[in-house]
Design a binder for these strands. Structure first.
Lengths: 212, 212
DNA sequence: TAGATTGTTAATCGATTAACAATC
DNA sequence: TAGATTGTTAATCGATTAACAATC
């Protein structure tokens, strides 16, 4: 017999929540104390019912007529995303995309902490990129194992992605943020978030040509 | 009275199709002539019925028992995405993300052509980034209007995104690929593809903590 | 031929939206 | 108080999956 499984939160809900959080910080900067689902929905062109349904997945409790207490709502949303604590990651692959992520200013307040950076290119190993000293990818698994790093940001070329992922999974990686435009195969306990620029480009070109 | 509207293709379908296309190029490199939905599904860990349903939105016709003729299928998929012809874009904002996109090697075969690059920072205007000479953003609307550029790649900071989008829409931009993590408001005829890194990060952190 | 595969029609599943009682 | 808003339960909508006849 099994314990009752907590119902999985729908992916579309998870994806909307960071946009709510950004808005909540804005409202906070404006000195607001209470925020209703209607306030959020109006700003993001969503329906209030959808915002309420999403918020119900966090542990916030609203107050009829007033909405949600802003400070508590921010905390609740951050806990939901696990952004209230540090999420340590190693980044493998210092091509243009890897470099961009290393210098991306907006990862503050997400709890994402890139704690080490690796590459296989001897001409890059030992160099400094965005304040990180680039290590030899051969040393990455040891680093991950010793420090119990849960997350891998994978920004290597397509041909190198599966091999790199395999080595890091052996070292205990639990989740992979994959920017290489290729499917990587993992056992069910390792989660892969595929970031596919071409999927986005496809939606752009297909939809822009509609009726145009 | 209206003409019968062509049924809109579901966004999840559009997003999967570039991954099919990459795989088809691989099969082509291996010398294959016929590809079945099962071949594709096995490689991508999808169900064959889903691949067949997706392919039905392109203009390919398969052959029972054999599958799809590979060359025709590639053409059909590229036409579906409008990647068989040039998709001209201007890029505004040469921060880390903009630079990365300008140097991103994988945009070949997508029909995306960045034809000009602009920034508002005087220290960047006139400089060379990834082989592009950076123009003054003030000149961007004129360039877009004169050349009939349909697409805008928006990689400016959050605070500048709406204003930049507004100027470019006045100049006739039809679709916006927005990398700034903020909602931009557009009239219904201008399509926005929001590329939100934080949405992806949210899925990664939420799912990786599940049961872990 | 027999069996693998397509394309179509129907069933299922899951997310969004609506309705509404409770309430500060 | 009256009205705006929450949280819950039900209805709708759209995408995925199943079933199956047609067929090379």
């Amino acid at each position: 017999m099994e314990a009752a499984e907590a119902k999985k939160v729908p992916v579309p809900t998870i994806r909307r929540i960071p946009s709510y959080l950004r808005l909540l910080y804005q409202f906070q900067a404006e000195g607001r104390r209470w925020i209703s689902a209607t306030d959020i929905a109006d700003s993001l062109e969503l329906k209030p019912i959808q915002v309420r349904k999403d918020m119900a997945f966090t542990d916030i409790t609203g107050t009829p007529k007033k909405g949600y207490p802003l400070g508590e709502l921010i905390d609740s949303v951050r806990r939901f995303l696990h952004w209230e604590k540090l999420n340590q990651a190693v980044l493998v692959g210092t091509g243009v995309l890897g470099k961009a992520l290393l210098s991306y200013p907006a990862f503050l307040d997400t709890g994402l902490e890139i704690s080490a950076v690796f590459d296989s290119d001897p001409s890059k190993i030992g160099s400094d990129i965005g304040g990180f000293r680039v290590g030899d990818v051969a040393e990455a698994p040891g680093y991950v194992r010793e420090n119990g790093i849960p997350l891998l940001i994978l920004t290597v070329p397509v041909e190198a992605a599966q091999e790199a992922a395999d080595r890091m999974m052996e070292a205990g990686i639990r989740g992979i943020w994959n920017f290489a435009p290729v499917k990587i195969y993992t056992p069910p306990e390792v989660f892969v978030q595929q970031e596919d620029l071409f999927a986005g480009l496809a939606v752009l070109t297909e939809r822009t040509h509609q009726g145009g």
